[in-house]
Design a protein around this nucleic acid. Structure first.
Lengths: 222, 222
DNA sequence: AGGAATAGTGAGTGATTACTCACTCTTGTA
DNA sequence: TACAAGAGTGAGTAATCACTCACTATTCCT
């Protein structure tokens, strides 16, 4: 039944796989240059002339492939939003709920590890998305829709599953989700964006973060 | 001894109190209009002509008080950065460490409550600061300096104090700080910026957030 | 090989930009 | 009251902006 309403999501993600479909070499260079300039200066302060210059292309070439500058932005930031939530749509994620012996910590560790890697590989794209989402209504709507659809249909189910199992406290799922997202985003923002040179053992850092999320920072006697 | 090196910080905050010093009525209107336009469109997409129009002022008047558009931005965003960290410099905060009977949860609740209120009252200003910090090196440097100075001299001391007391786990203070900031920022961003219409009992929400930070989301049996 | 579609070009365009400047108006002081 | 200093003005300016278009180069199908 989920496959009916979420078909568009699956389609969306499938389209992301072959997004290198039929692109000219120059068009690829335009996208690469746009990512550079957008992430460095922000969308509004980025000029099409600089993008063209960095791509080694005439300015008119940009507008052959993209109607407007905003079009170029959306063609870049849109897919990032989808990829950001992609792992929560994978089959493995749904199947996971059928494995009652799977421990929450393994589950959380896997997600954090995966999204940390994703953030590292896509720093500039994420920066562009986060920066422009408040000013581009289309982007905001897309992100909100992706997030709510995924959360209510998948993640919330997973939370309730683990709660029934006794692995998670019986608190409202949205609070569990918010705490987890806060902790994970905080960790990723710190290590990837704020202090990328801060030395750390990735596996241990993941484990400690999940441990704090699960058991808190209070002392033992409590 | 802290009073020597941190004199500049104290001075900075004192200057914020009487920042309404000798300002013309039109100058105040310019600042108000600038806050509006900057937060709506972003600094780069905001035009001085629109700011002047909204302030009911000639465009030249802006440049009588501010050398450049960037000057106007910095005069707005700079003080916000300082006010953001201000409560961690208050005398009460330092004195708190001399009260061994004070419980961590009361401490955390007070901070969260205070910063939540601050965020509500200064939504637009915070939005401007967060949005422009990555693109204005002066702002970034100021925020980093404020944060590190405050953290190492005050908050870290507080964490170690509570650890010695047995109220907090013996984990590296920076990890305690990161977890706390993550959880608090996540809570504030959700309630103030993402879902301001989401109905909630503020006091209970504060209590539940602090409880999750202290004791985690794991089920009792563990 | 031929011809149509698509990719690429770059000079040109009107609109908008941040900022200037010569000027007037207001305010405080002696 | 006289006068200096600052506040306020708005037309003006050079630069830059996103975007267009008439044209050429390349690719692709038959």
């Amino acid at each position: 039944m989920t496959d009916e309403k979420e078909q568009w999501l699956v389609d969306l993600l499938r389209r992301l796989e072959d997004d290198d479909g039929k692109k000219t070499e120059k068009q690829i260079r335009i996208i690469e240059a746009a990512v550079e300039v957008f992430s460095e200066k922000g969308f509004a302060a980025a000029s099409t002339s600089e993008i063209a210059q960095r791509a080694g292309v005439a300015e008119g070439t940009i507008f052959r492939h993209y109607k407007t500058k905003k079009d170029l932005l959306l063609s870049i930031a849109g897919p990032v939003a989808a990829k950001l939530f992609a792992p929560f749509l994978m089959r493995d994620f749904a199947r996971l709920l059928e494995l009652p012996y799977d421990r929450v910590e393994d589950f959380l560790r896997a997600i954090l590890r995966d999204r940390l890697e994703f953030a590292r590989k896509n720093m500039k794209l994420i920066k562009i998305l986060v920066h422009e989402v408040p000013f581009q209504p289309e982007l905001l709507a897309q992100v909100k829709e992706l997030f709510t659809h995924i959360v209510v249909t998948r993640v919330e189910k997973a939370v309730k599953h683990f709660q029934a199992q006794g692995a998670l406290k019986e608190i409202p799922p949205w609070r569990v989700i918010r705490s987890t997202v806060s902790q994970f985003v905080g960790m990723i923002v710190f290590h990837v964006f704020l202090a990328p040179d801060f030395p750390f053992d990735e596996e241990e850092e993941i484990e400690r973060t999940v441990d704090i999320l699960l058991h808190g920072i209070a002392g033992r006697p409590s």
